Amino acid sequence: MRRLVPALLAVPLLALAAPASAAPGDFEVVTASGVFGSAAPAYTYQPDLVPAGATARVFAASAPELGTSVTLLVTGLRADREYGAHAHTRPCGASGTNAGPHYQKQVDPVSPSVDPAYANPENEIWLDLTTDRTGTGIGATHVGWQFDTDRRAGSVVVHETHTHTDPGHAGTAGARLACLNVTF
């Protein structure tokens, strides 16, 4: 439970810390939730690892002086298992590839991006998690930037493994298991 409390408080604490001088629209809060199945807003592509009926919730808050905090809470996944999760550029669809690549603040000119200079937790939203004995898990991150107003992420994709960081594999996390539409 100790591990869950700081992660669950990350977004609310950022919200409380929003500067009084922030102009309207500078501070943003985004939430999304869904039950995994075969249609929007939450798709499962491998029901043996992300069963139909499992749930996901995303909470995000951002402000210019503070950056962006994102928390992913999942329930009903396979117990005692590591998963990767990232913000992706487009909304979910019938195939995991519909979500596009990872959202990157500084976009790698080479695709797919496996260069640690671009595919890293400071330039992308990484929400890796490990489920407990009940299949519940939480991933949280904070980056020092906000999404661009004209270029935002459209989903969070749950992947097969924790995210790799080594050159040539940076940012990879195996197959796309599930996807939740999030309007960042």
Rank of each mutant, 00 (worst) to 15 (best):
V5W: 13
V5C: 03
P6Y: 08
P6H: 06
A7P: 00
P12R: 00
L14T: 03
L14Q: 13
L14M: 14
L16K: 07
L16R: 08
A17R: 13
P19D: 15
P19Q: 14
A22I: 00
A23L: 14
A23E: 10
V29P: 01
V30P: 02
V30K: 07
T31P: 00
A32Q: 09
S33F: 04
A39L: 03
A39T: 07
A40T: 01
A40E: 10
A40D: 09
A40Y: 06
A42M: 07
Y43K: 02
T44P: 12
D48C: 00
A60W: 02
A61G: 13
A63L: 06
L66S: 11
V70W: 00
T71L: 14
V74K: 08
T75C: 05
G76Q: 07
R78V: 15
G84Q: 03
A85N: 05
H88I: 00
P91Y: 01
P91D: 04
A94D: 12
G96I: 01
T97L: 14
T97Y: 09
N98T: 13
H102W: 09
Y103I: 04
D108M: 06
P109L: 04
P109D: 11
P109G: 02
S111V: 12
D115V: 03
D115K: 01
Y118W: 14
N123C: 11
D128Y: 08
L129A: 11
T131N: 09
